[in-house]
Write a protein that binds this DNA or RNA. Structure first.
Length: 482
DNA sequence: TTTTGAGTTGTTCGA
DNA sequence: GTCGAACAACTCAAA
């Protein structure tokens, strides 16, 4: 097998970027530069991944494409350009490696079932041509094989997992390389940044969400700086208030690897109570990724197999009302409209909206999971699946299955002045605060003054929460013995 | 192997 | 209005 890299007196390495669109603290990139005299950055637009389960959110893909442009600019400043190809990676990556005479391919290790199979196929195809495939950390703070119980298994409960993660040694952060050696293969037209496709090229409708944080690594790093300097201190106190800008808004940056989770944790851990609380949230991201790595079946099945027999209801009308933000429960509707408008939803609102679908409507959590993946800019298989299963009572949660969130109580507690509801459900703009989370309790004269007739201007509640709660508890009780 | 302590984010009821 | 108990017993992780 002829290898031009060797013939030229040095090794050639490909760095195949996937969901690690950064140059800072990038172990695979650093490893490639350390081993090779020529390093070619590659991105492969994978149609299978884009179309899978019809869950390609246009706004999420648009964020990714814009972040690719930013990555290309960062690489260009270091003497390389991003090579962009489209197709099945098992065919494209070995083809590119052969084309440029690469000896090896470096990636950041993935944890999802599709990614594991894909990477195994790529590694096999490369090996058949005498080329090597190298996986490095970078997606997570700790790799799944590094965090095990005393018995050697994967953790199934969050608290001991989080304690173990907190005790895990922190590796040194890696500086962004100053120069990427010989990155541009001569005459390859695909290295033109125009090779990064547009949404329409991928057969996706236009992105519509507003208020999406600026894509790309430099913007993400600026967000992290601002968060550490400003928001973090108040995080513990304000993180649950849905109308307040009290969360980090770094989720899409971690989703696409614009930020290294190691760097995020290093810079936030130990920064007072806010930092501790935030580190716990990072540990949840870590936990859900480790659960998925340990048991890929949870993509479609209940994590706790004994909870897999809940008699979910077929309720297309209720599901549509939930998606559209017309359930008659203000905080749920505000949450769903925020999601539709922004491609993002406040963390607390995600729990409230999810609980309503799976408990009040008793609709299968997979329906909610799919809708979130179709809309969230930060949509991540592991975190989304883990969160939905947790709310549904099928997930990794030792706590009781009878936890059913009361939407009006949650609204009163986490949106006390109704600002969140009024922002996203303008029909309720003039409803007095004491009724804003339960407009069906409003006396007729108050409703008239607020210009809000239930059933005309805003839906009457589509379920009675007390009845729905009893129904959900009974359904879970009956499924309990599976 | 057996035992023991503990488990994200809640709600409702009744004193 | 506030506060503690009940919900319903179970699994996990480590000693």
């Amino acid at each position: 097998m002829a290898r031009s890299g060797v013939a030229d007196g040095g090794r050639t390495a490909v760095v195949w970027f996937r969901r690690d669109l950064r140059v800072h603290d990038h172990p695979a990139l650093v490893a490639a530069i350390a081993r090779a005299q020529r390093v070619v950055p590659l991105f492969v637009v994978d149609d299978v991944l884009l179309r899978r389960g019809a869950t390609a959110a246009p706004d999420r893909v648009a964020f990714m494409l814009a972040s690719l442009h930013a990555l290309d600019a960062s690489l260009a400043a270091r003497g390389a350009r991003l090579l962009v190809r489209r197709g099945d990676p098992a065919r494209v990556v070995p083809a590119v490696a052969a084309e440029i005479g690469a000896d090896e391919v470096h990636v950041t290790r993935d944890v999802g079932p599709y990614g594991r199979v894909r990477d195994a196929r790529v590694a096999d195809a490369l090996a058949a041509d005498g080329r090597s495939f190298h996986e490095a950390p970078g997606l997570l703070f700790a790799e799944p094989h590094e965090i095990r119980t005393a018995a050697g298994g994967a953790y199934r409960v969050f608290a001991p997992f989080a304690r173990r993660v907190a005790a895990h040694p922190v590796r040194d952060l890696l500086a962004a390389p100053g120069r990427i050696p010989g990155g541009r293969p001569d005459g390859a037209a695909d290295t033109d940044p125009a090779a990064i496709p547009e949404l329409a090229d991928l057969g996706l409708p236009p992105a519509t969400a507003t208020g999406i944080p600026e894509p790309g690594e430099p913007a993400a790093r600026a967000r992290l700086d601002r968060w550490v300097a400003g928001g973090l201190a108040g995080y513990a106190a304000s993180r649950d208030l849905v109308a307040v800008d009290g969360t980090s808004r770094l989720s899409q940056d971690l989703r696409w690897g614009l930020l290294s989770p190691v760097e995020v944790l290093v810079r936030t851990r130990g920064a007072g109570p806010g930092g501790e609380r935030f580190a716990t949230e990072i540990a949840w991201r870590e936990f859900y990724a480790h659960l998925l790595a340990a048991d890929p079946r949870i993509v479609t099945a209940a994590y706790r197999r004994d909870t897999g027999h809940v008699p979910w209801r077929h309720d297309p009308v209720g599901l549509d009302a939930w998606r559209a933000g017309r359930t008659g429960f203000p905080v749920v509707d505000a949450a769903m409209r925020q999601l539709a408008a922004m491609g993002w939803m406040h963390n607390r609102a995600r729990m409230i909206a999810a609980s309503f679908l799976v408990k009040d409507l008793l609709v299968d959590w997979r329906e909610g999971e799919r809708h979130f993946m179709r809309t969230l800019v930060d949509g991540d298989l592991a975190s989304n699946n883990g969160g939905w299963q947790w709310v549904a009572g099928t997930g990794a949660d030792a706590a009781p299955w009878f936890r059913v969130l009361n939407p009006s109580l949650q609204g009163t507690r986490f949106d006390p002045d109704g600002a969140y509801v009024r922002r996203w459900v303008p029909e309720l703009g003039d409803v007095p605060t004491r009724f804003v989370h339960a407009p069906w309790t409003m006396p007729a004269d108050v409703a008239a003054r607020a210009g809000m007739l239930l059933g005309r201007d805003y839906p009457a509640p589509i379920v009675d929460h007390a009845d729905a709660r009893r129904r959900a508890l009974e359904a879970h009780r009956s499924a309990g013995t599976g």
